[in-house]
């Protein structure tokens, strides 16, 4: 009897070891084309394909986890997942809390979308997703900021007339603007942020190295550019 119990513990231990190789990727699931939940209820989008490919190259088993944007950094730090891959721009403020891999997109200009092209940005109400580079940009520029929990809601605020314009990553807006003829891009664009990278805990240097190498190899053989073109994320490397 005692022996039996011992074997099960050993089994459990090895199972634990096997699981240790599972890397959990945290994303928002509400930021197309970067990441979104498709009709089948699965995480889909540019970052889904990218993340799967990166894990394959780094020979890691990966699992996808969704977490709301607001608490995505605290939950990484507290260990609910191991990496953030959620269209997160690399900024100095975030670097104080977490580490980033090298960027896997070029800095994408942030664009304004409004119902009419002649919005006066100096005293307009501008919507942005909370805790984004765009939100801090608007707040610091002194315009009237209104924040929403998701990018969807920020854009919906413009459609509903709640806000005069929304500021967000251009790639995330293109599709909505083409499918809704009320919406137009403003000419003015803002260059903020330094490209998008994966966020990792500061203590996970090894994992960061693995992903860094995988991103580099995708950059080198052109697969990353192919993905960027496929999902219309912006300029290629």
């Amino acid at each position: 009897m005692k022996k039996l119990i011992l074997t099960t513990t050993a089994l459990a231990l090895t199972a634990g070891m096997a699981l240790a190789d599972t890397v959990r990727l945290g994303t928002e699931g509400a930021y197309p084309p970067y990441n979104f939940i498709n009709d089948a209820g699965q995480v889909d989008g540019f970052e889904r394909e990218l993340g799967d490919e990166l894990c394959k190259r780094a020979s890691l088993t990966c699992e996808w986890v969704t977490n709301e944007w607001d608490s995505i950094i605290p939950n990484l730090v507290s260990g609910n997942y191991d990496a953030i891959i959620a269209g997160m721009s690399i900024t100095d403020e975030r670097k104080e809390k977490i580490d980033f891999t090298q960027p896997y997109t070029l800095p994408d200009p942030s664009a304004y979308v409004a119902l009419s092209a002649d919005v006066d940005l100096t005293n307009a109400v501008i919507a942005a997703q909370a805790n984004t580079i765009q939100a801090s940009f608007v707040a610091a520029a002194g315009a009237q900021l209104v924040e929403f929990a998701t990018a969807d809601e920020a854009l919906a605020a413009v459609v509903n007339g709640e806000a005069d314009a929304v500021l967000a990553d251009k790639a995330s807006l293109v599709d909505q603007v083409t499918s809704n003829d009320q919406l137009v891009f403003l000419e003015k664009e803002e260059l903020i942020g330094g490209g998008i990278g994966m966020g990792l805990r500061k203590s996970d240097a090894e994992l960061r190295g693995q992903f860094d190498a995988a991103i580099q190899s995708m950059k080198d053989d052109g697969t990353l550019n192919a993905l960027i073109t496929k999902w219309e994320i912006g300029a290629t490397f």
Partner: peptide
């Protein structure tokens, strides 16, 4: 999540808000 407006590119069932 389901109620938010959807464009044809990311779903087979596009709909407004």
């Amino acid at each position: 999540e389901l109620g938010a407006s959807k464009t044809p590119r990311f779903t087979d069932y596009p709909h407004p808000d």
